[in-house]
């Protein structure tokens, strides 16, 4: 197959249509052979476009911020704890939640491919799967955080979790100050995708649109 431009925004029309044609041909072959059902493919695409996303993870974090027993259960066995929240899609057996504290900041990467907790965060963004992030997160995490506009105190321990097996990591960000008494739903709006990867922090109430 022909090489393909790295950045989808800089694809040339002809290359793009060639890619589309090749993928369509592959689907035709697999369908004719009976290996795949196009209706099932439609349903998978639709689910990732509409149902599976970081709202699921944000609900988990908001619950952990408001319910100490749930937080304890989450840190002990995230798979089991998340399963108790009926509205979140079922996660695999190997979810691990890691907590940010005043002394420690967690950040998740997959240097070897693109391992990411899909069920709670949806599909990973392009940057997570990109060479700059995969190469630098383990060596220069503060530099990576600076790319995200995040600066942490210089004494804060930075813990980078390289997802080298089927374990998946969800960062439990620190609850922002000034949110005492907030509902879970309101708190969930503060929980960004990046704060659950560890390349960001949860939003403060001041950052929210009025």
């Amino acid at each position: 197959m022909a090489d393909h431009d790295h950045d989808p925004h800089h694809e040339h029309g002809s290359e793009l249509s060639e890619t589309q044609l090749r993928v369509r041909a592959l689907e035709t072959i697999l369908t004719e052979k009976g290996y795949v059902d196009p209706a099932a493919l439609d349903a998978i695409v639709e689910a990732y476009e509409t149902k599976v996303g970081p709202r699921n993870g944000a609900a988990v974090v908001a619950r952990a911020w408001t319910d100490p027993a749930f937080k304890q259960a989450l840190l002990k066995d995230a798979t089991a704890a998340v399963a108790t929240l009926g509205h979140v899609s079922p996660v695999g057996d190997h979810l691990v939640a890691v907590e940010n504290t005043s002394g420690r900041h967690n950040m998740v990467v997959c240097t070897l491919c693109s391992c990411y907790p899909w069920e709670v965060l949806g599909l990973p963004p392009v940057w997570y799967k990109s060479a700059p992030y995969r190469s630098r997160a383990v060596k220069d995490p503060r530099g990576v955080l600076a790319d995200f506009g995040v600066s942490l105190p210089k004494e804060t321990e930075i813990r980078v979790w390289d997802s080298t097996a089927e374990t998946r990591f969800l960062v439990l960000p620190t609850r922002p100050a000034g949110t005492e008494g907030w509902s879970e739903e309101r708190l969930a709006d503060l929980v960004t995708r990046d704060s659950m990867i560890g390349t960001g922090l949860a939003r403060s109430p001041a950052e929210m649109p009025r």
């Binding site: 925004h9 890619t19 689907e27 493919l41 392009v126 990109s130 190469s135 630098r136 990576v144």
Partner: peptide, 29 residues
Amino acid sequence: MGGMDGFGKVEVEANEPPFHERWEGRVLA
């Protein structure tokens, strides 16, 4: 790639869609 140099800055796309092109979703599915 862990620890390699020279790939540059992490570029973040605001409001990134799950798929940039239809074929990407087909490949994943």
